[in-house]
Write a protein that binds this DNA or RNA. Sequence first.
RNA 1: GGAAGCGUGCCUGAGUGGUUGAAAGGGCUUGUCUUGAAAACAAGUAGAUCAGAAAUGGUCUCGAAGGUUCGAAUCCUUCCGCUUCCGCCA
Length: 419
Amino acid sequence: MVDIQLIRENPEMVKEAVAKKKCDPKLVDKLFRIDEEWRAKTVALDQLKADQNLVNKELARGQTEELLSKAQILKKRVSELEEEYTKLEHKRKELFEKIPNVPFVNVPVGKDETENKILREVGKKPEFDFTPKEYFSLGEELGLINTKKAGEITGSRFGYLMREAALMEFALVRLAYDVALPHGFIPVIPPVMIRGEVYEEMGRLAGDQKEERYHLGKDDLYLIGSAEHTMGPLHRGEVLEKESLPRRYIGFSTCFRREAGTYGKDTKGILRVHQFDKVEFFSFTTPEKSEEEHQFLLSLQEELMQKLELPYRVVEVCTGDMGWTDARQYDIEAWFPAEGKYRETHSCSNTTDFQARGVNTKYKTEKGKKELVHMLNATAFSQRPILAIIENNQTKDGTVKIPKALQEFVGKKEIQGIQ
RNA sequence: GGAAGCGUGCCUGAGUGGUUGAAAGGGCUUGUCUUGAAAACAAGUAGAUCAGAAAUGGUCUCGAAGGUUCGAAUCCUUCCGCUUCCGCCA
């Protein structure tokens, strides 16, 4: 949720900021107006209720016909006003749902991913003296990926991850936890379903994100799209001690995404699927420290990529491509040599107080005042790096070398396929 | 899935229609006392929101949402959560 105070005090600034995120600035004007109306109605209603309370107190002392009829009239007026008030409140809430987080002023402005700012390229791209295969055909040959059967059993955009690929997933999870734990991250396996109310508070049903969610009608629950979604509310309605910040969690969960509106994209393979597993970092910190924490999370992500010896680049995501809840976002993209492209494997977001406001997580300052925390989320590992490993580490004779960091967990150095 | 019970402030716990936003105790904070601490005594101690420059004032909140009533923590309905017993189950 955006800070209404910010809109009241400086609507032009919010309009400008939000427009960069491809949000219609007129919505801010609209919210500004509705908010004014809502406030006026609040004053009127509160006054009427105060009158009503007064009469009720008199009635408690002794009843007269006159008082009683006065009370009845007041009751009617209150319920009329209340109806108008509720309408305004709904409108106001709807508008909140349409306004994304305000990006930091120094975020690169752009319309889509082509305008993301490349910060650095790291690692050496592999050179092949043969034509490298794309991960999915090689993965299929080696018995690591089966999308045909998955299509038959479940549908398109699902896959079986098998043999060493399945083992590599566990290895990645282990590696992520091993790197994170010394930094004080609390390990967690969160629920993969969430109530709509909390999902809204996390700003994850807002805008067109609702289309992206699976909803279980019978139980009125949503399947989460990321562990972020149920880790963020871990301190819902709580006031944290400042000394306990930053509070860091690392969670593993399966993620579910409808991938609405991506029909043509990445239809081959399992880069874009409806269900995948992911390890996620999540931090709660103070507003002063959130940019620093953001950099820290990014550095952890890079450390993980370097441990896998994968060539990657870091981009700062431009305003038009950023997430709904983000004030700043970095992506890490791994090199896919056969495709000849970098593809996103990690993202790292500072949501500032946007989610904290919704989920009502605060901390106590030195002066004893309560302020909203800042919340950050970042990918540790998803299944995508496995695909990058397959494509980058292939050899001329069709095998795949397993990165040193994973060899112990997988129990071998090379994937040779089904003999 | 069946049966029963329960959900009040930081905690325990009173409160079954009217100065109850909520007794009492504990905890916590501050002060007095003390060389210091403890004890004792005194005072303070919910959040959200609106108006206001502020002081302050209003409104709302006793699991949640509706309803009855002039008036609800208290009555009714639905939902959620928890506990116990049975069934099922990794």
